[in-house]
Design a protein around this nucleic acid. Structure first.
Lengths: 220, 220
DNA sequence: TAAACAGTTAACCATTTGGTTAAACCTTTT
DNA sequence: AAAAGGTTTAACCAAATGGTTAACTGTTTA
């Protein structure tokens, strides 16, 4: 994102994200993929247009400039996890269960949305440079949920006092790093046999595994 | 990095990294900073040259093209943590101590090297696309150290059996995400007061805190 | 001291890239 | 069916960007 022409990145109009048949939908689907693969700076508007099968001018007509396009993508990818977590967590009572659900929600969001890790990691790497306000708010609301769970757990004497934000970073960091890190590791064919053979695949689900670890870490 | 002109990125010649007075040194210092800030694609060779105070042609004469320059930077930033960890860890006997040292080494490497988190995160986000073989090997050797610690700990009945690679990703993920995430959080002035006030700063050192958490997570 | 060499630079170049324009193409409305 | 409005496109453009060249400066060597 060019530092000079910094404009507030608002969403041009309410778009039909869920209708990939419509032009705008096709563009956003393509954009999400290309942005995830190459990052903001590595992404060329022409490539998005090509992958969406539309003319570049159509893209500009339908959505706007690169910034707006990216804002839409990031909102689409990161924005809608919050509500899901809130709903799922609310269904449980015990802080332990809630925390497990919290972690699992994030893990499955990542599963269903392979574009999430790279986009999120790059967003963090750049200090949240392109984060639209809406998304930042969504993320804050996610951390707030964890805050509630942990406060409850501490009050009930189940958890030790630990900084919630650190725990959130631990959950996110572990899941995202593992998701992207494992394939990189597998790619290194020359890796010492010890590493490859001994480090067996996860038994169960990544969400469960991480949930257990985090729980054990903060339980009294 | 352009997919088409994929050349093996070897280091042109042994350079005086530690002599920032020399031209090559100045260039690498500038490059490290600019690459960390803007990522590979967001970095312009002209800007590096400008920040180094040399002509762009000098940069090409001294080091080579953008790819080579980046390979040098990433090697400089990520490559030399391995030996430090190995040495420090060797000084301890007990697996618990070793693990604490392991985590603390990574944490202080990050402290001393603010460019490490963004570069590493973006590298992971891109699936290790630009990772020179040397660096991949260094990273592998780091994980191997953890593998040793954990196997020892498990054999002695101190640790529960857990995938070492997952734990490594947990350590790295937590530290890097927290390092970059905390400033982003602080930037959001509008954050609900609850979040800002309740989520107090870490009591001690990030390395210690993470070390304790991870240790608790994998201890029997 | 003159030739050889290492290091630096201003100017230049080809290509890429984000973004625009004016005309064409559909639908819908009248 | 013609006017109107929304949608798509080929062609175009200015700026940016990675990389090169040929000349110039200073230092080493013979």
């Amino acid at each position: 994102m060019d530092q000079r022409k910094r404009k507030p990145s608002f969403i041009k109009k309410q778009m039909d994200f869920r209708e990939p048949g419509k032009t705008a939908g096709k563009i956003l689907v393509a954009a999400r993929k290309v942005f995830a693969e190459n990052g903001y700076n590595g992404t060329h508007v022409d490539e998005i247009a090509a992958q969406a099968g539309v003319n570049k001018a159509t893209l500009y007509y339908q959505i706007g400039d690169k910034d707006t396009l990216y804002a839409n993508v990031i909102h689409q990818v990161l924005g809608n996890v919050a509500q899901d977590i809130a709903d799922s967590v609310a269904k449980a009572d015990h802080p332990e269960d809630k925390l497990k659900i919290y972690v699992n929600c994030i893990a499955s969001a990542v599963d269903e949305n392979p574009e999430l890790p790279p986009i999120m990691m790059r967003e963090m790497a750049s200090g949240g440079a392109h984060l639209p306000r809406v998304v930042a708010e969504d993320m804050a609301s996610v951390v707030t949920i964890l805050l509630g769970i942990m406060e409850d757990g501490i009050r009930r004497g189940i958890f030790v006092e630990t900084p919630p934000f650190l725990i959130h970073m631990m959950i996110m960091g572990t899941i995202l790093f593992y998701k992207k890190g494992a394939p990189i590791k597998e790619k290194q064919l020359w890796l010492p046999a010890a590493l490859k053979s001994r480090d067996k695949k996860l038994k169960g689900d990544l969400g469960d595994e991480v949930g257990q670890l985090v729980l054990k870490a903060i339980k009294k």
